[in-house]
Design a protein around this nucleic acid. Structure first.
Length: 821
RNA sequence: GCCGGGGUGGCGGAAUGGCAGACGCGACGGACUUAAAAUCCGUUGGCCGGAAGGCCGUGUGGGUUCGACUCCCGCCCCCGGCACCA
C-alpha cells in the first residue's frame, strides 16, 4: 500500500479526468496523412490483455508517450496507435479454469485496460485500435499465410518438434529457453509431428544485413546475429559405396576441412536417416537401445555441453576420400540431427568434443595441425587453433591461413566436397495445437492433399462453441462443424487444418494494420501504408530480440518480395527500455509481494506524478526500482511548479531588472537541455533540468531580481517543456495562466543560442592538475588574460611555492593548468 | 566457457579527457504549529583542523596524459544473452 500522500493544493484526479475527456472529445490525437508536414510513426509494443495495466506497462509507455508528444510539438505529423495482442494461451487457460469463453475474457480485459491506458494520459489515436483476435484482423493473417504458401514460404513437414506438456502445444525454437517453455517454464519434450513452418531460413543471409536500420541497439543486432549463427564451411562426402545402399556417400559439414586427415571416426546423430540401414546386425540391439535413450533424454540433458559424451558404434565404416582410410562410425547425441547434415567427421586432436568422445571410447587421436612448439608427442587436450598441416599427405606444410582454401578447393575439384554456409537458425514453426488463435486456412483432402482455402472463403472463422479441454490436439479437431468440409479443388469430403497460428504471426505485421485498421480489401490500404510506414521509432522490451523483432524483419522482407510493401525493414529505429523492479530491487512478483499497482498512485498523486517518477529514476534503458518515497519527491516538485505558475507576475512590478538577463539565460539554457535530452530518450536528465529551472525560478522570485516579462517568458517555457512529460498539470496551468487551449498544440519552444550564452564564466585554475582556485572572468577572456589572472592568484602563488613554472595549459573558457616543478 | 552491459556518497543517479557527486530520496538542524502532518529554509562523500585550509576519494592493480569516473592493459565482482551448432 502506498503511504499517506502529501496534501496537494489541487485534485489530480479531477484535473486529469477533465482533460482526458476534453482531449478525447476534440480528437486531439487523431492522425491524418498530411503531405505538408514530415510524418513520424512512433510505436510501442502492444500489450497482451492480461487484465490490468501494471507498472511495467507504465514504465514502457509513459516515457514513450512523452517522446511522442515531444515529436508532435516539434511539428511532426505523428502516428501513435495502440491495440491489443489478443490471441494466446492465457485466455484459453482462463476459459478452461473458469468456464469463461476466451473471447469474453479477452474483451473484458481489453475494456478494463483501455480505461487504465486513458488514465495515463497517453496521446494514442484510439480510432486506429486493433484487436487481433477479431476476424477483421485475423483474416489477413490467413491471407498472408496463403501468399506465403503460394511462394513456398509456408510448408508442412513431419519433424521433431518442441512440445510443452503444460501448454499442450508445440513451440518454436525461439520460444524454448534453456530447454524450457518460455511462457510456463516447463521442461520441453521432443515429439515428431506434422507441423507448419515459415521458411525464415531463406532470409537468413539478408537478416544478417542490418544496413537498412538507422538506429538499433548493437546488443539486439548481436543477439540476432548469434541466433542466426552463420558459419562458413565445407560439406565433405565420405564413401559408403561398399555398404550397397542407394546412398553412396555420407555427408558431413565442417568449418575445419584442413583437419580432415585427422578424422579417426565419424559421428552421426541418433536420428540420422542412414543409421538404421548402416547398422551391422550384431550392433542392432545396442544401437536401438541408444536411439531410444537419446529420444527419451530431455532437451536440457542433451543440451548441456559438459555432459558425458555418450555414444555407441554402429559396426560400419566409411572411407575418407582424402587418404583412403577406413573410418569407423558411431552414433552419439552430441551430434544434432537438425544442424548441417546431422553427421560430423570427428577429429579428436582438433576438436574438444571429439577429443572427449575419443578419450571415453579409447579412439585414436591423430594430430594433423601442428600446435606451436609441438614436440610431436601426444596432446593432453585438443588443439583448436590454426597451424601448419602435418600428416596430411599432399597438404603437408600448408600454413594455417591457407589450409582451409587449399583443402576446400581440392575437395571441390575432386568432386567430394563443396563450400557451403550453414545457419544455426531453423525454420519458424507456426502451428499450435490450441483453440485461441488464427485457424490455418488449409483443407486436407484425401485426394488432393493440403489445399489452400480460396481467398474468397476467408476468413476461416473460429467456431464459438468449441470445447477447450487440452488434450494435446487442437480443440478444433473435435468440433465436427468446423472440421468437416468439402475440398475446394475436387469437391470431395475433406477436413480442415485444426492447428492455429503462433501469435507472433499477428505481431509480425500489426504495425501496418494500424495505418488503415478498417480497410477490408487487403491487410492494409497501400496508400496509407505508403504514407506512414515503416515505423520511424519503435520502443519495447529487449526480451523480443530473437522472436518478435526477428520475425517482423522476416515478414517485412517476405512481404516486400510479394510486392505488398516497398521497404525491407519494419522498424528503422529501436529503443529498448529496461525493467522496472520492486521497491526491494527484486523482480516484481505476486509471491514476493512487491508488486506495485499504478492505480493506487494515480488515484492519490495523479498520473503525472507516476509518469514523471518513472522517467526520473534513471536512464530508461537501464530500468530501475520503484520507490514510494521517491514518487512523493516528484509530487512535491509538481506542487512547486504549480505554486510558481500560479504566482502573479504583477507582484514584480517594482522589481529591479538587474537580474533579467540571468533568468532569460537560464530559460534558454533549459530549453536547450530539455530538447537535447528528450531527443535522446534521456528523460531522467530532462526532468532534472526542469527541477533546477524550478529551483532557479523560486530563488529569482525571492530575490525580486526579475521583471514581469522575463518571469512570464520563463514560466511559459517551463509549462511548454513540461507538456510532454506531465500533460495534465501543464495543460491545467496553461489554461489558468490565460493561454489558449491546448498546450499540446503549441510549437515546441526554441532556444536562442545568443541568449543562452554565458557572459561570465568560472575559470578553473589548477597547479599540476590539482584544483587551486576559481576565478570569475568575462566569457571572452583571452588566453593571455586568463594565464595572467591565474598566475596572479594568491592561492596559485602559494601552491607554486617558489617552483619553476614550466608550462601553462589553457582550455578556452574553462581552465588554466599551471605545470611547475 | 563465449559474447554484451555495468561497478561513482546511506540510496536512485549526474558528469564521457578539464570544478567528481547535478537533480531527487533519506538523514540531521531550523522556521511555522498548542502539537503533529504538510510546507518552507539550511546542512549532508570520508579524514585532519577551533577556523582558514589541507589530505584522501569514482571495484582493483598498472599505464598514457599537463590533467583520467572518462582512454589503454591486467585482475575481481554483479547483471543480461548464448551455450555440444561441428
Amino acid at each position: 500500500m502506498p503511504p499517506q500522500p502529501p496534501e496537494l493544493p489541487y485534485n489530480p484526479s479531477a484535473i486529469e479526468a477533465r482533460w482526458q475527456s476534453r482531449w478525447d472529445a476534440d480528437q486531439l490525437y487523431r492522425a491524418q496523412p498530411d503531405a505538408s508536414r514530415p510524418k513520424w510513426y512512433e510505436l510501442t509494443m502492444y500489450p497482451y490483455p492480461s487484465g490490468d495495466l501494471h507498472i511495467g506497462h507504465w514504465y514502457a509507455m509513459a516515457p514513450y508517450d512523452t517522446h511522442v508528444r515531444f515529436k508532435r510539438m516539434q511539428g511532426f505529423n505523428v502516428l501513435a496507435p495502440m491495440g491489443f495482442d489478443a490471441f494466446g494461451l492465457p485466455a484459453e487457460n482462463a476459459a478452461i479454469k473458469r468456464g469463461i469463453h476466451p473471447h469474453t475474457w479477452t474483451m473484458a480485459n481489453i475494456e478494463r485496460m483501455r480505461g487504465q491506458l486513458r488514465s495515463m494520459g497517453a496521446a494514442f489515436d484510439w480510432s486506429r485500435e486493433i484487436v487481433c483476435c477479431m476476424p477483421e484482423y485475423y483474416r489477413w493473417n490467413q491471407w498472408l499465410f496463403l501468399q506465403f504458401h503460394q511462394r513456398g514460404l509456408a510448408y508442412r513437414a513431419f519433424a521433431p518438434a518442441n512440445w510443452c506438456p503444460s501448454c499442450q502445444t508445440v513451440l518454436a525454437n525461439e520460444q524454448v529457453v534453456g530447454g524450457r517453455c518460455e511462457r510456463c517454464d516447463s521442461l520441453v519434450e521432443r515429439r515428431d509431428l506434422n507441423q507448419w513452418f515459415f521458411r525464415i531460413t531463406r532470409y537468413a543471409e539478408e537478416l544478417l544485413d542490418f544496413s537498412g536500420l538507422l538506429d538499433w541497439p548493437e546488443k539486439i543486432k548481436l543477439m540476432q546475429r548469434n541466433w542466426i549463427g552463420r558459419s562458413e564451411g565445407v560439406e565433405l562426402s565420405f564413401d559408403i559405396s561398399h555398404a550397397g545402399l542407394s546412398e553412396k556417400t555420407i555427408k558431413v559439414f565442417t568449418t575445419r576441412p584442413d583437419t580432415v586427415h585427422g578424422a579417426t571416426f565419424l559421428v552421426l546423430a541418433p536420428e540420422h536417416p542412414l543409421v538404421e540401414r548402416l547398422t551391422a546386425p550384431d550392433h542392432r540391439a545396442a544401437v536401438a537401445e541408444y536411439v531410444l535413450q537419446a529420444r527419451r533424454a530431455s532437451e536440457i540433458e542433451r543440451m548441456s555441453a559438459d555432459r558425458e559424451k555418450t555414444g555407441v558404434p554402429i559396426g560400419a565404416y566409411c572411407v575418407n576420400s582424402f587418404n583412403g582410410e577406413r573410418v569407423p562410425m558411431y552414433i552419439a547425441d552430441y551430434v544434432l540431427a537438425g544442424y548441417g547434415s546431422g553427421a560430423v567427421m570427428a577429429v579428436p586432436a582438433h576438436d574438444e568434443r571429439d577429443f572427449a568422445f575419443a578419450r571415453k571410447h579409447r579412439l585414436p587421436v591423430k594430430v594433423v595441425i601442428s600446435p606451436p612448439d609441438w614436440d610431436g608427442g601426444e596432446l593432453s587436450q585438443a588443439f583448436t587453433g590454426q597451424g601448419v598441416m602435418v600428416h596430411s599427405g599432399r597438404f603437408d606444410g600448408t600454413p594455417g591461413d591457407r589450409a582451409f582454401d587449399a583443402v576446400a578447393s581440392y575437395a571441390e575439384a575432386q568432386g567430394f566436397g563443396r563450400r557451403t554456409i550453414t545457419y544455426r537458425m531453423r525454420d519458424w514453426l507456426i502451428s499450435r495445437q490450441r483453440y485461441w488463435g488464427t485457424p490455418i486456412p488449409i483443407i486436407n483432402c484425401q485426394k488432393c492433399g493440403a489445399v489452400p482455402v480460396p481467398e474468397k472463403d476467408l476468413p476461416v472463422l473460429l467456431p464459438e462453441d468449441a470445447e477447450f479441454k487440452p488434450t494435446g490436439e487442437s480443440p478444433l479437431a473435435r468440433h465436427a462443424g468446423f472440421l468437416h468440409t468439402a475440398c475446394p479443388q475436387c469437391g470431395g469430403p475433406a477436413t480442415r487444418e485444426t492447428d492455429t497460428l503462433d501469435t507472433f504471426v499477428d505481431s509480425s505485421w500489426y504495425y501496418l494494420r494500424y495505418t488503415s485498421p478498417h480497410y477490408d480489401k487487403a491487410p492494409f490500404d497501400p496508400a496509407e501504408a505508403k504514407y506512414w510506414a515503416p515505423v520511424d521509432q519503435y520502443t519495447g522490451g529487449a526480451e523480443h530480440a530473437v522472436m518478435h523483432l526477428l520475425y517482423s524483419r522476416f515478414f517485412c522482407k517476405a512481404m516486400r518480395d510479394l510486392g505488398i510493401v516497398s521497404f525491407g525493414e519494419p522498424f528503422t529505429r529501436l529503443y529498448n527500455q529496461g525493467i522496472i523492479l520492486g521497491e526491494d530491487r527484486e523482480k516484481m512478483s505476486k509471491s514476493r509481494g512487491n508488486v506495485v499497482n499504478p492505480d493506487d498512485y494515480v488515484g492519490t498523486l495523479g498520473a503525472d506524478a507516476v509518469r514523471v517518477f518513472l522517467m526520473f529514476i534513471g536512464p530508461w534503458d537501464q530500468g530501475g526500482s520503484w520507490s514510494s518515497t521517491g514518487i512523493q519527491g516528484i509530487s512535491r516538485w509538481i506542487n512547486r511548479v504549480w505554486a510558481i505558475a500560479e504566482r502573479d507576475p504583477a507582484a514584480l512590478a517594482g522589481a529591479s531588472t538587474g537580474g533579467v538577463p540571468e533568468l532569460r539565460r537560464v530559460t534558454h539554457k533549459t530549453i536547450r537541455r530539455v530538447t537535447q535530452d528528450l531527443e535522446r530518450f534521456q528523460f531522467n536528465t530532462s526532468v532534472s533540468a526542469l527541477m533546477e529551472f524550478t529551483n532557479h525560478l523560486g530563488r529569482a522570485w525571492e530575490s525580486r531580481a526579475v521583471d514581469a516579462a522575463a518571469w512570464r517568458e520563463a514560466v511559459r517555457a517551463l509549462l511548454l517543456l513540461l507538456a510532454p512529460i506531465a500533460p495534465h498539470t501543464s495543460e491545467e496551468l496553461w489554461e489558468r495562466a490565460g493561454y489558449a487551449y491546448s498546450i499540446h498544440q503549441q510549437p515546441w519552444p526554441a532556444w536562442d543560442e545568443a541568449l543562452a550564452r554565458d557572459e561570465e564564466i568560472t575559470l578553473v585554475v589548477q597547479v599540476n592538475g590539482k584544483l587551486r582556485d576559481k576565478i570569475a572572468v568575462a566569457a571572452g577572456v583571452t588566453e593571455a588574460q586568463a594565464t595572467a589572472l591565474a598566475l596572479a592568484s594568491d592561492k596559485v602563488k602559494a601552491a607554486l611555492d617558489g617552483k619553476q613554472v614550466r608550462k601553462v595549459i589553457y582550455v578556452p573558457g574553462k581552465l588554466v593548468n599551471v605545470v611547475a616543478g
